[in-house]
């Protein structure tokens, strides 16, 4: 029975059903993108992309997504460390809560943010009158909304990296006299750099594409809160050519990010 087995191994043809279904999946996902490209006003693309509204949105998106990524790094890396390294009761609940925004509809996130940080919100009412800090309708509010929605992507990626890392390096650092804080700073973070970079990139891309939470919580005003996705939305009402041009920009950026991530995201260490 050796011969047939050998023959089978030499021709590992994938089952036709799987190939057909997989192909359908690919077509389903790529077709809308092809349609978008096909409708693109290629000739005016240059002039569309330098319009003030477009430039404002592009710049605002870069700034806010960058800031949201920064905040996520400062809060999210320690959070991932605590989730991966500190045993405490309720850790699973905390992890579930922290990653909830990943699956929550962004509109719900926006409404929840309003109830928390809005003028009459749980915390917002104390920020508004005594302190004069107003998050809705401000660029800071955009960053808050983006951070809320995008930080879990960083936390999840970094925590996976931490769980895959060899903890005995931390033991080795302790035997050399390093406190846990020193170990975190000089060992854990640098050794985790690839996972942190991947998480940050993913977080940035998610923040860049954020729409629902932003428009609900931060409103929609050119130059202040109208990011790229909101500009697409606004342009759809009047200037469809500009909307398509902006959409193309978003698609290209997202595609570049995913290509940069391909190894790390699909095969974390």
């Amino acid at each position: 029975m050796t011969a047939p087995r050998l023959a089978r191994r030499r021709a590992p043809r994938p089952p036709l059903v799987l190939v057909v279904l997989a192909g359908t999946g690919v077509v389903f996902v790529t077709l809308p993108l092809v349609a978008l490209v096909q409708r693109a006003p290629w000739r005016q693309l240059g002039s569309l992309l330098v319009r003030p509204g477009v430039v404002d949105a592009l710049w605002l998106s870069m700034v806010t997504a960058g800031a949201a990524t920064g905040v996520s790094l400062v809060l999210g890396v320690p959070l991932a460390w605590v989730l991966a390294r500190v045993e405490f009761s309720g850790r699973r609940v905390v992890r579930a809560l922290v990653t909830l925004p990943m699956v929550l509809p962004p509109v719900v996130a926006g409404v929840a943010l309003l109830f928390a940080f809005g003028r009459r919100g749980l915390v917002g009412q104390w920020l508004d009158t005594p302190l004069g800090i107003l998050l809705p309708f401000s660029t800071t509010g955009v960053v808050v909304a983006q951070t809320f929605v995008a930080m879990p992507f960083l936390v999840v990626t970094v925590e996976a990296g931490l769980r895959g890392a060899d903890r005995r390096y931390e033991d080795a650092a302790a035997t050399l006299g390093a406190s846990r804080w020193t170990t975190f700073r000089r060992l854990t973070v640098p050794m985790l750099a690839p996972a942190i970079a991947a998480g940050a990139l993913l977080c940035w891309a998610r923040a860049l594409g954020e729409f629902g939470a932003t428009i609900t919580f931060a409103g929609n005003l050119q130059g202040r809160t109208r990011t790229l996705p909101l500009a697409v939305f606004a342009a759809l009402e009047g200037d469809r050519e500009a909307a398509i041009a902006l959409s193309l920009v978003l698609v290209v950026i997202s595609l570049v990010v995913l290509l940069a991530l391909r190894d790390r995201w699909w095969a974390p260490r």
Partner: peptide
């Protein structure tokens, strides 16, 4: 018409 330069904070869809 009322010669007001508004300080609009959000433009809703």
């Amino acid at each position: 018409d009322a010669a007001v330069a508004p300080a609009i904070d959000t433009e809703e869809a």
